[in-house]
């Protein structure tokens, strides 16, 4: 009888430990490794066109997806958090693929053709009265070598 109780207790302890370990791993699950992930290749002009001509389809295909966006660098600067900010031309005046970099950006030069991999969070709001176009945002960006 004592042996049976011991067995049950052992099973409970093992299950508790497994449950705790599982909970710990889920809670501390790392973010997606963008640098190592395979991104869907898309040209900046096509990506912007997709969001401005058929936003429903663009949302389904691109939002929260890892994309590898290629195009010409319009400018590179730093945001308020000191992260590199790369704007890729879209063919539309004043509208860009707006990439906030997580990886190094020292090799990125204005006017160069680049491919940047990151997660697409959608198209931002513009202001038609002011002629401010909405950008398509890419977060956690990495330069594809």
């Amino acid at each position: 009888m004592a042996g049976k109780a011991k067995k049950i207790l052992s099973v409970i302890i093992v299950l508790t430990l497994v449950g705790a370990a599982l909970g710990y791993f889920i809670w501390n699950k790392p973010h997606l490794d963008i640098a190592g992930a395979t991104g869907t290749k898309v040209v900046a002009t096509e990506l912007y066109k997709a969001f401005t001509t058929d936003s429903v389809s663009a949302k389904q295909h691109y939002i929260q997806q890892v994309l590898e966006v290629s195009g010409t660098v319009n400018s590179i600067s730093k945001n308020q958090q000191n992260q590199a900010l790369v704007l890729i031309k879209t063919g539309a005046d004043g509208a860009f693929i707006n990439c906030t970099m997580e990886g190094p950006a020292d090799d990125i030069k204005e006017g160069a053709t680049v491919a940047i991999k990151g997660i697409c969070s959608g198209i931002g709001q513009g202001d038609a009265d002011l002629g401010i176009m909405g950008d398509v945002y890419l977060v956690r960006g990495y330069l594809v070598k």
């Binding site: 707006n98 931002g124 945002y137």
Partner: peptide, 23 residues
């Protein structure tokens, strides 16, 4: 979220901002 669009009109004080939650 570092992808916030905002417009400020210094004459009227009008202020707006918009952000994508997924950012």
């Amino acid at each position: 979220n570092n992808q916030v669009m905002s417009v400020l009109n210094p004459q009227t004080g009008e202020l707006q901002f918009s952000l994508l939650v997924k950012s």
